[in-house]
Design a protein around this nucleic acid. Structure first.
Length: 366
DNA sequence: CACCCGTGGTG
DNA sequence: TCACCAAGGGT
């Protein structure tokens, strides 16, 4: 921590800040399903789901996930397909594979009890510095910083910290600050209050300073620079890729689907056969797709004309997918699995491939 | 550190 | 439309 920041903290009314913040939180906090108790497992699941994901999106997933897998034991013993299906549509699917892996570790090495030491909990897959602090403080009431985007935004304004919060090393500054500020009486409420304030009052654009319970402590508000903070450098634009996909079916209406590899993008999810178009050949998308289905799956097909397009936007790339319907005239190789339309709902697909299937169903109707 | 890893909402 | 956002972690 630099000298300027240390000086700010020396003249900061820490206890008054804690009281104003926590009292506001205890009165105004939202009634969320993961706040019904302090079960470390449920806190853990909620924190993983909430990573880079909105509260409103998480709520229905959390409720049904806990119904399906109410305990560490239940999740540890669950079928991986079923677990992935419960996560379908939430995104960042490695989160749930890491979670199940970590839960198995807790079952085997810690007797099914989530460890309460920073060192041990950090070794669990998918538990980084934020999630570590969140579980320890919320479930175990241990005064550990839990620095997420909310906390960096709120504290950058409170203390007028002009470091770029997009830079990895900046998180250390905010952990140091949080360690100075955190309530030793109620670290759980303190950490959650900082995040709740960021979500409800101290929002990224147009913060509601006049409603803020801690504006008397806020140097950015005092100086009128709350709209300039935090400093956050720009992200790269996602790179567009041209793709082609086929909804492959036989004359009985069975579908032929492919399981993606266990690492990388959309790992272990199912998809309709697809590939990236090569721009340099003189062939049409349709011709390239027929070639691909033949070489990759030994599938002889009758392809439709272009049936539609689907866009899939990721953090770092964009698929522009041209969709064709293909009827197979032979038995494809073992890289494809045949399923009936009724069975399809047991498999987890990325959202783009759900849309691809919708196009096929629309064609069937006509 | 830079890059990879999803999705849906919003001004 | 588009840029940015939302309780990050792994490599």
């Amino acid at each position: 921590m630099d000298n300027d920041l240390q000086n700010k903290l020396r003249s900061f009314s820490i206890h008054e800040f804690q009281d104003d913040l926590i009292n506001w939180y205890l009165t105004e906090k939202r009634d969320l399903p993961w706040r019904k108790d302090q079960d470390p497992y449920k806190v853990w699941v909620s924190e993983i789901m909430l990573q880079q994901t909105r509260v409103d999106t998480v709520i229905p997933y959390f409720t049904s996930f806990i119904e399906k897998f109410p305990t560490i034991e239940a999740l540890a013993d669950a079928n991986e397909e079923e677990v992935l299906k419960a996560w379908e549509g939430l995104g960042y699917y490695s989160r749930v594979r890491n979670l199940q892996s970590a839960v198995k570790e807790v079952k085997e090495s810690y007797g099914g009890v989530v460890p309460n030491s920073p060192h041990e909990i950090s070794k669990l897959k998918g538990v980084g510095p934020y999630t570590k602090g969140a579980i320890l403080s919320i479930a175990y009431n241990i005064p550990e910083p839990a620095v997420d985007g909310n906390v960096m935004r709120v504290l950058s304004r409170i203390l007028s910290i002009w470091e770029d919060i997009a830079k990895p090393k900046t998180r250390k500054t905010f952990e140091d600050v949080t360690y100075e500020l955190i309530s030793r009486d109620d670290p759980s409420s303190f950490n959650q209050a900082l995040m709740e304030l960021g979500a409800l009052i101290c929002t990224p654009t147009s913060p509601s300073c006049l409603l803020c319970p801690v504006r008397e402590h806020c140097t950015a508000f005092e100086e009128g620079v709350q709209a300039e903070l935090p400093i956050k450098s720009k992200k790269k634009k996602p790179k567009p890729l041209q793709m082609a996909a086929a909804v492959l079916h036989d004359s009985d209406g069975n579908l032929y689907i492919h399981k993606r590899p266990s690492t990388g993008l959309l790992a272990n999810l199912w998809e309709h056969p697809n590939f990236e178009i090569v721009a340099t050949t003189g062939k049409t998308y349709r011709e390239q797709l027929a070639d691909y289905l033949q070489t990759e799956y030994e599938a002889k097909v009758v392809l439709s004309e272009l049936a539609g397009t689907v866009e899939h936007i990721f953090s770092h790339l964009i698929w522009n997918i041209s969709i064709f319907i293909a009827e197979v005239k032979n038995s494809p190789n073992e890289n494809l699995v045949a399923v009936s339309p009724e069975e399809l709902s047991k498999f987890a697909f990325p959202v783009s491939h759900q849309k691809i299937y919708q196009i096929y169903k629309g064609q069937n109707l006509a």
